[in-house]
Simulated scan of single mutants.
Amino acid sequence: MTDSHPPAVLPRYVYKLISPASDFNPKDKVLPLSALDKADGFYHLSTKEQAPGTANRFFPGSRFSDLLVLKIDYQGIAPLVKWETAKGEHPTDQSRIFPHVYGDLLQQHIVFPISMMWQPNLGSWDFTEGWEDRQ
């Protein structure tokens, strides 16, 4: 993953998914890397449109009891972001190109955390309209 393919219109916010939510400490200056982030050498982020798919694919309620989504100011981290195709994916559209942060992701760029609720009747996290503004 070396080529950067930013979207034509950059987002105002990007999102970092964390589970368990207890792994997030708002007092940390730098957001710790998850095991996957450490293995890949960057922070995995998603756009607003990508977050529901990422959550339901990688954080299923059958394995994770809670999910925290960090809303991050894109402009503050833009110099550290590379837009890259997901592993094993062949880009057919922008939905498969994800923002990855190379370097430290500072807490100062987090707008606020969003606690997500699992919907057992639907088998998915609650990403109903307006989810990105819940606090």
Rank of each mutant, 00 (worst) to 15 (best):
W125A: 02
I110F: 14
L31F: 02
A21S: 11
E84L: 08
S22P: 00
Y15C: 06
M117T: 08
P60F: 01
Q107C: 14
Y43G: 05
Q119I: 13
D28E: 09
F98T: 14
M1L: 15
E49S: 13
I114M: 10
D66N: 11
L70Y: 01
T47F: 06
E89G: 08
K16G: 09
V69P: 01
S19D: 02
D104A: 11
H109G: 11
V30L: 03
W83L: 07
F58K: 06
I110S: 12
H100I: 05
F42V: 02
A35N: 10
Q75W: 04
D104L: 12
F127K: 06
P79L: 06
A51W: 05
D37P: 04
F24R: 07
N121K: 09
A35Q: 12
N56W: 06
H100K: 15
K82W: 07
Q135H: 05
K71D: 01
D133L: 07
L80V: 02
G88L: 12
D3N: 15
L70Q: 00
D3Q: 13
Q94F: 12
Q94K: 03
I97Q: 11
L33H: 06
D23Q: 08
S19E: 02
D40S: 10
S19M: 04
A51L: 10
L105C: 08
L122G: 04
G41R: 15
A8G: 05
T128E: 13
G123M: 06
L67W: 03
K38T: 03
Q50E: 12
F127S: 04
K38Y: 13
T85A: 14
A39R: 13
P120R: 04
R134V: 02
N25H: 08
S124W: 05
S22M: 08
P91E: 10
D133W: 11
P20S: 04
P60Q: 00
F42S: 11
N121W: 07
I72R: 00
D40R: 13
P91L: 09
R12L: 13
K38C: 01
K16I: 09
